[in-house]
Structure formats: structure tokens, C-alpha cells
Simulated scan of single mutants.
Amino acid sequence: MSNSSEISSELHTLRDYLRWGISEFGRAGLFFGHGTDNAFDEARVLVLHGLNLPLDIDASLLDARLTMIEREGVVALIKRRVEERLPAAYLTHEAWFAGLSFYVDERVLVPRSPIAELIAQDFEPWLGGEYPQRILDLCAGSGCIGIACAYQYEDASVDLVDISRDALDVADINIARHELSDRVRTVKSDVFGALHGQKYDLIVSNPPYVDAGDLAAMPAEYRREPALGLASGPDGLDITRRILREAADYLSDDGVLVVEVGNSCLALDAAFPMVPFMWLEFEHGGHGVFVMSRKQLLENAASFA
């Protein structure tokens, strides 16, 4: 990458810095998958953040000239994205999920779950038109899933559970940010370990599910995320097996379990060939999410034991 002062002296407008950022990302061979999927959108997020401008700026501003301080700030962001392979969300400390803004940093994964689509659809038809009163976001990380559920179900109480205190500190920031402390709380727990006697109408989980092979082959951007939120044993199913064994004890009679296992869906089918997992399809992309009722969990308890 060229010298920062040289770049700042040669590029002048917002459009210049967008073009330059796109070019630098292409030259560096960056990976996109943490909120954007291409160099243009990634550059737009970082350049506009560096200028304190919204993402939906009027096109007439593209030819506005930047001050030298603004130029240097934008260059610094682009250089960090290239040299440190930090996803843009860690540089801006903001990620969007289910239409909501969340604080994120390197203590949590960057939100990107297709479960957002299920929330918008009220988890239908699996909840049967009933609104859950108690919801558990298991392996919550930033708390984005549980907080989005709290918005969708305004009378529900929500527990955000994670084994990582660091992750829960980020979730607490997001609870405060969305002013939901009266209905949403964090609980430090190794899966269900600290939830004795609790019952939920809906358990939603995006647990660690990356197998050892995929973890070793991941692009550098993923290695900037906490391994605790990704790795889950040789086949990616260590945590999911525990959830399947124990979830029925924490669901109400008509309760529903929703779990994302991503690419480990094939391994899950292979591990439990007698279990009829219901794999969901998504209009906006994503895969590897299944739904099971408490009744189905009990019917298949012998397989999960």
C-alpha cells in the first residue's frame, strides 16, 4: 500500500476515496462475509463511517472534497482493513441485524445469522400463532438474536446466555443501547448449566458449529473473531449435541427449539440418521437451521443420549 501522506495529497473527494478503497481491497485479496459481500460495500461502510456520514447519503455528496484530517482518517481505516484483516464491523464497532444496529468488537462474532428472517416471520408456522412469553438466546454473543426477538415480542422476557463473560459484557452494552434492561438480561452459563428450573417458550441458538477442518481453512478475517464462538470439535457438533440432549428440560410444553449449525448440517444428519431434522429455506440466503418442538426432542431422546 502506498505511503499515507502521498495518498492523502493525491485524492481529494469522497468518490476518490471510495474508488481507492475498492482498488486496495481488490489488490489485497480481502475476504468479505461479515455484513458485506463485496469490495464496494465494504469500502462504502468504512469511508462513510470515517466521515461520520450515513450509508444512504445523497449522491451529490460524492464529489465533496475532504479536509486533510478527514482524508488521513479514512486512509487509516482502509489501511487497517487491509493490513490487519479486520472485518469492517470491528473497525466501525457497528453491525446490523434484523434491521437493528448493534455494538460489536473482537469479543464477539459479527452478526450474520439467517435467523433474522425467522424473527421477522414470527417463527411461523412453528409457534402456531402464539407469542412466546419467555425466550432464551443460547450462545448469545452480542445478544443480537435475543434483542431482535424482544423487539418482535414486546411482552416477552429474554435471557441472553453465553459462557463468555467478555461476550456478555458486549451484550450488556447492546441491552443498554436498546433500552431493554427491563425485559432482557444476561446470564453466564455453560449451555444450560446455570439455568436450573427455567422454562422457555422459544429457545433460539446460533452456537459454535465450525468443524476442525473448516476452522483451519478459514480466511484471515474469520481468525480475527473469537475462536470460542466458532470452534465446536472435530465435526462442529460438540455444543449442538448438548443442546439436543438437554433442551427439552428447558422448554415449555409447546416450546420450540431453533438452532443454526451452518455447514455442519451434513454432519448432523449423518450423526443422527434416524432423526427427521426440519431444515429451513431462506429467501435472503443462509442455510443449516433446523426447528424442533419439545415433543420431537422427547420422541428422539434415545438418539441424543
Rank of each mutant, 00 (worst) to 15 (best):
A120C: 03
G143L: 00
V158G: 02
R81S: 05
L109W: 00
Y200S: 07
R112N: 10
P114H: 04
K188E: 15
E6W: 07
A76T: 03
L109T: 06
E246G: 05
E260C: 01
L14M: 12
Q152E: 12
P54H: 10
E106I: 01
V82M: 06
A59R: 14
D190C: 05
I163E: 02
D201F: 03
Y103G: 02
R85F: 08
E106F: 02
N263T: 13
N174C: 10
D155A: 13
F25I: 04
E94T: 14
L280M: 11
A171S: 13
P132L: 04
Q198M: 12
F32E: 09
E70H: 04
A140M: 04
L86Y: 08
K295C: 12
R112L: 08
R44G: 04
T36A: 11
D16Y: 02
W126L: 01
G29S: 12
E281A: 14
D166V: 07
H196A: 14
S9A: 15
I243A: 05
V275H: 10
I147S: 00
R65F: 11
D58Y: 12
G236L: 04
G255H: 04
A216P: 06
W20M: 07
A88E: 04
R112C: 09
V210D: 02
S164W: 00
L77P: 02
L266G: 14
L18E: 07
L46D: 00
D235K: 01
E72G: 01
N3C: 11
I173G: 04
N206T: 11
K199Q: 15
E6C: 10
I145R: 00
